[in-house]
Design a protein around this nucleic acid. Structure first.
Length: 282
DNA sequence: TTCCAGGCGTATC
DNA sequence: GATACGCATGGA
């Protein structure tokens, strides 16, 4: 569903201003556990890197934000899509609520109210794959730390070739723990073509996409769902982790018909995940 | 000291 | 298919 309100883009000296973007909340978007390489700076900007490019985001009002160090050409070529700015999130919210069973609607309304402003970022598939392999049985601060360490290998997000060169022992030395062999296997299978990102991107059969990713050692149902949602924008993906298990038990009577949400499942999941963590004080 | 974190592989039934 | 357990690490 595309946005019915068009954003406006104004180029200034060294930055862009994006207006009419509501709902967009940079803090929620970078703090909802989908991206691990953006950090809040003292000046209120979120600074990070994606697709090999540095960027800084400054929210100036609920309906506008600045992208620092970005030209209009860069914006239309990359960042507009990255931030998913052409999707109508207001309409998506209404769909999510309408598709929620009556007895759980109150909870979902609260989760939507809490999480509105989150954008499902269209991140790089390889970075997303590595990030969520690292995420397993791990906590978000340490995931960020490990990814930062990996990025120091080549002063950018490490390529599959780099992980192969570093080797399992090298990855182990970088404190990735038991995930070292999984990272190596991911790199090997991406390089060999056994896992093919173009094929996954073009495939509309969710279970087929998940199955291809799950050929990688250390990639199961949950990691594949995160990669498909955050790296391929397959928005029907619904990652179930320890937090979501709690949510489903508490508010949905232990059972949730994910299929009812269709293409809105991933966003509904993000709202519930963010809401539960917000209630628990992060 | 023990438990836990955006799980998964393996063994076992 | 379900369930139990180990796994590296570091913070609470």
């Amino acid at each position: 569903m595309t946005a019915h309100h068009k954003i406006t883009v104004t180029e200034h000296d060294g930055y862009l201003t994006i207006e009419n973007c509501e709902p967009f909340d940079a803090a929620k978007t970078f703090d909802c556990g989908q991206a691990f390489r953006f950090a809040l700076q003292a000046d209120g900007c979120f600074t990070g890197e994606a697709f090999g490019r540095a960027i800084s985001v400054r929210q100036s009002s609920p309906d506008s934000f600045d992208l620092i160090g970005v030209t209009a050409d860069d914006f239309h070529a990359l960042w507009r899509r990255y931030f998913d700015l052409d999707t109508d999130y207001t309409a998506a919210n209404a769909e999510i609520l309408a598709r929620t069973p009556e007895k759980s609607r109150e909870t979902m309304a609260r989760a939507i109210a809490c999480g509105t402003g989150i954008r499902l970022l269209r991140q790089d598939p390889w970075e997303t794959l590595v990030s969520f392999i690292v995420s397993q049985n791990n906590n978000i601060p340490r995931i960020r730390k490990i990814l930062q360490t990996l990025c120091e290998l080549e002063n950018a997000f490490p390529s599959p070739e780099t992980l192969i060169r570093v080797g399992v022992d090298g990855l182990y030395d970088l404190k990735t723990g038991f995930r070292a062999k999984y990272l190596y296997d991911a790199a090997a299978k991406v390089l060999s073509g056994e896992v093919n990102f173009e094929r996954i991107a073009a495939c509309s059969d969710y279970s087929e996409c998940a199955g291809e990713l799950e050929r990688i050692k250390g990639v199961g149902r949950k990691v594949s769902a995160c990669v498909l949602l955050f790296g391929f924008h397959k928005t029907e993906a619904f990652p179930v982790d320890v937090w979501m298990k709690k949510v489903i038990d508490r508010y949905f009577g232990g059972e949730l018909d994910v299929n009812a949400y269709g293409e809105y499942a991933g966003l509904a999941q993000q709202y519930l995940f963010y809401y539960e963590r917000w209630k628990m004080g992060r």
